[in-house]
Amino acid sequence: MQTEYLNFEHRERSGSLFLVLIFVIGILFALPTQLLAQNETVDKTVELQAVAGLKYDKVRFTVEPGSTVRITLENADEMIHNMLIVKPDTRVEVVKAAEAMGEQGMQNDFVPQSENILANTPLLKPGAEASIIFNVPDQEAIYPYVCTYPAHGLVMYGAIYATENPDDLPPLDEDPNIPEPVRNEMAASNAMHPYEMEMPTLTRLFMPESSPASIAVGMEKNQSYNWDAGYSFLRYVWDGGYIDASDQWDAKAQEVAEIEGDIYYRNTTGFPFRVARQDSVPNPEFEGYRMIDGYPRFMYKMGNILVQELILPAENTPGFRIKYTLENVDQPIWYALSNNDDVRVEVSKGTIEEDMVKLTANQAREFSITIISEE
């Protein structure tokens, strides 16, 4: 809008013109920030994609301190994503605040009220895109960008380096500001697009009888399961198909996916681990996951104990096997078994006592639970 439209010194102050002015100003204030940003002069434009596997296709990029940057995010995934740019060293704090929004999260794009947020997109359904303007502060610093949809923020993030020396970035394998899988698996490449696009059948979406942080995984042999990252345990397993999520992509409809198959196993105990005593239930803290031969290996902590959980199809199906690895364990561990009809449970170590598996500290360091449907 040019100044002459607002200068009324040489115009008749008619009531109709005044009403027109109010109407125009009202429209401008109603326009989304992303639309107004398109006409703003910028020093740099950056294009990002949200891609399969809870990843951005660029894990870091550089900008000049004090510059103005337009960032366009395209959601090329089949899940809902957003992107928040936050102040240095505040990513985890903002992610936890978004997780705590609960049922109000979807209505507010999982963007919490926080002075640490510098810019953000809304939630984007698959195929959608949005642009934001990031006015880079004058000081050199590292500004994280992150998806705050539940269970995404621990693994789906990157780093904006505001620096006068863009050639001085650390090697990828030594950069603590980018996701660990990049450092571990793509350290030999300094490419801006380190991820391969072919991924296993893994979907983050709303699932029946589960928290908003659900992760559906389709395995081989027509086996699928729902792992709840909000509570760090397996919810249920089904046979015969995967999911129909077509109703979920009205972004904020909060519809649950439909399971295409028959559930034959349900978790009836909640978080299964007990530490030291049968009645000592720890409060788990989700730490993300890594892909192992096409399957996610979930990681979470219960106190100082790090648990790694890998779920695979069993040799005899319908059935599945959970492989557990526990680190820093020095006390007996109890594992609560769920009550399911028509299934057979096999344990690789320990003894079963009253629907619980008792393991010594040494046995608990690596063991497996196999569950086979007998219907």
Results as ranks from 00 to 15, higher is better:
Val329Ser: 02
Ala52Ser: 12
Arg297Leu: 06
Gln254Asn: 13
Val69Met: 07
Asn135Met: 10
Ala191Trp: 11
Arg277Lys: 15
Val136Trp: 02
Gln49Leu: 11
Pro65Glu: 08
Asn184Val: 13
Arg183Val: 06
Gly15Leu: 14
Glu129Thr: 14
Glu140Phe: 04
Tyr145Trp: 07
Ala229Cys: 12
Arg266Thr: 01
Pro112Met: 08
Ile133Tyr: 02
Met291Ile: 14
Val95Gln: 01
Val69Trp: 02
Glu196Gly: 13
Leu326Trp: 03
Ser67Glu: 06
Val95Arg: 02
Thr148Ser: 09
Leu312Ile: 12
Thr90Gly: 04
Ile142Gln: 09
Arg70Ile: 11
Leu124Val: 05
Asp167Pro: 05
Thr325Ile: 13
Gln34Lys: 13
Glu366Arg: 08
Glu366Lys: 12
Ala188Trp: 08
Asp77Thr: 03
Ser232Trp: 03
Lys301Trp: 06
Lys58Ile: 05
Ser16Lys: 13
Asp228Gly: 01
Glu103Trp: 08
Ala141Gly: 09
Ile369Cys: 06
Tyr242Arg: 05
Glu196His: 12
Asp293Lys: 12
Ile22Phe: 11
Gly288Trp: 00
Asn316Pro: 07
Thr45Gln: 15
Tyr264Met: 00
Leu154His: 05
Gly261Ala: 04
Val136Tyr: 02
Asn75Tyr: 05
Ile22Cys: 13
Arg91His: 06
Ser373Gln: 05
Ala251Leu: 10
Pro126Ser: 05
Asp77Trp: 03
Leu35Cys: 08
Phe29Lys: 11
Trp227Gln: 01
Glu74Pro: 03
Pro32Trp: 07
Gly15Lys: 10
Phe271Arg: 06
Val95Ser: 02
Lys58Pro: 03
Gln139His: 10
Val357Trp: 00
Ile215Pro: 00
Ser232Tyr: 02
Gly158Trp: 02
Leu21Tyr: 12
Ala191Val: 11
Leu310Gly: 04
Pro212Asp: 01
Thr41Pro: 10
Val329Arg: 00
Val111Thr: 08
Leu124Pro: 00
Met199Trp: 11
Ile322Thr: 07
Leu6Gln: 10
Ser67Lys: 08
Ser338Val: 00
Glu196Asp: 12
Pro179Val: 02
Gln104Cys: 09
Ala151Ile: 07
Ile263Tyr: 01
Ser16Trp: 13
Gly66Pro: 06
Phe29Met: 13
Gln113Glu: 15
Val51Lys: 00
Glu9Cys: 09
Gly53Val: 01
Glu374Gln: 12
Val51Ile: 15
Pro126Leu: 04
Leu21Ser: 15
Met1Val: 15
Asp77Ile: 04
Arg11Phe: 09
Asn304Cys: 07
Asp250Gly: 14
Pro144Ala: 06
Ser14His: 11
Pro137Asp: 06
Asp167Ser: 14
Leu84Gln: 03
Leu205Glu: 01
Trp238Cys: 00
Ala37Val: 12
Tyr161Gln: 07
Thr201Val: 11
Pro112Asp: 06
Asp168Asn: 14
Val92Glu: 11
His10Val: 12
Tyr295Arg: 05
Ala188Arg: 08
Ser280Gln: 15
